[in-house]
Amino acid sequence: MDKYPEPLENLIKEFQKLPSIGRKTAERLAFYLLHQPPEELDLLSQAITNVKEKIRACKICFNYTEIEHELCEICRDPKRDASVVCVVSHPQELLKLEKTREYRGLYHVLGGLISPVNGVGPEQLHIEELLVRLRTGNVQEVILALDPKVEGEATAMYLARKIKPLGVKITQIAHGVPVGRDLEFADEVTLSRALAGRVQL
């Protein structure tokens, strides 16, 4: 026998498709599940099905929201300051900012950063929607909270060029900590000059 029975093999294959999961980990997860009571497995498969079916993007800011709401929790909240919009690349970053409880304005999630090497141009992101929002609404200030590395910098500069003519104030959060430790044996000289908020907007 050089393979497990098909259902088990299938499950392992599915796990392997997930980021940073290799064959060994996939096997471990599969065997773990095999030993769980059926109720537990139902909960898990429900959760997996729901994540796509019961969630959608907010119509205004593209943050995630439950399927029954057109707008996310933040956009629905009348106490939030609608004159300020903070631009982030992903919902994860939005959540990070929310956890600080410092910020009381609204958000706009771009869905990524401009990255020509990966074929991501402005039109693949929710940039046009942001501009429409700024043109039509009563937003007075846009805060860019994008990654300080080159992709984030280029995206911020691009946005600045597009937003400036609209007469909306535009600022950028200060980047204290250098990021980018994802390189193998990350070389810190690369990161030392942490591009710290040096873009003039």
Binding site: I114, S115, P116, V117, G119, G121, P122, V150, E151, A154, Y158, R161, K162
Partner: peptide
Amino acid sequence: LRRKSALLRSERPPVEL
């Protein structure tokens, strides 16, 4: 530079970018 090169090779690169 790498990013700009990729952009130059793409179809109709946006001028602002």
